[in-house]
Amino acid sequence: MQCLPEELLIATIADLLLGCRTVAVGVSSPIPGSAALLARAQSSQPLRVELLESLHGNSFTRGSVELFDRAAQGRIDAFFLGGGQIDGLGNINLVGAGEYPAGSVRWPGSFGSSYLYFLVPRVILFREEHSRRVLVPRVDFVSAPGVSEPGVFRRGGPYALITSKAAFLFDAENCRFRLSSIHPGHTLEEVLDNTGFEFDYTAAPAETSSPSAATLATIRGSVAGEIAAAYPQFAARVFPRHQ
């Protein structure tokens, strides 16, 4: 089925949310937000989505402080984080490249990552750009570590990494990513060339499944309508016919 790259990513991420009861979505996350809404539409059990950036898309009555309190209590099952740099240990950097603080590039800052990475069981790393600039051997600044010393309270961490080229799952026992599938139109060689850290893979990796016609209809229908409230510019670009 012919689909946009964004739609493939939305469907791929939605599959990773199966079994979740509550999925929260932070700022600047239109594709993860759409994925969470798709997962809710497809889930056979009740699935709650909390869109932090949407005026009527969340149930917080004390502001976004409530997201963090709920996460600490174990009430949030999945969340999304990105980063200007991500390394093979699952460390993420949202602060900047080069030496801290006055490095070569400054990014916005760590947001809630330094905390939510520890407390949300299933954290999905999402970054469209798949390059050696982003997927580095070692991040320049650890906004949030991928793994912790024994004895540090931690119920969550990296679960998967989704880029514009491929999907990886994180092997927490060995602290490494494992390539799970490559998106249509991309190759293993290209993924290896553009990834700055080592990861596990098989000689013939699977191709990421394209969304079915029914899934695409849901994305282009109810999901497009709902995500536009939080991300109008994204919705206008990706779902222009819905406007």
Binding site: S28, S64, V65, F68, D69, A72, V95, G96, P101, A102, G103, S104, R106, W107, P108, G109, S110, F111, G112, S113, S114, Y115, S143, Y231, P232, Q233, F234
Partner: peptide, 25 residues
């Protein structure tokens, strides 16, 4: 959706303001 904060980023890089990086909670 409009991207990075240009004057904040420039000031951090030039060291004209002190930044104390925190995390939301």
């Amino acid at each position: 959706e409009f991207g990075g904060a240009p004057r904040f980023n420039a000031a951090v890089k030039q060291g004209t303001i002190a930044v104390r990086d925190a995390t939301c909670p």
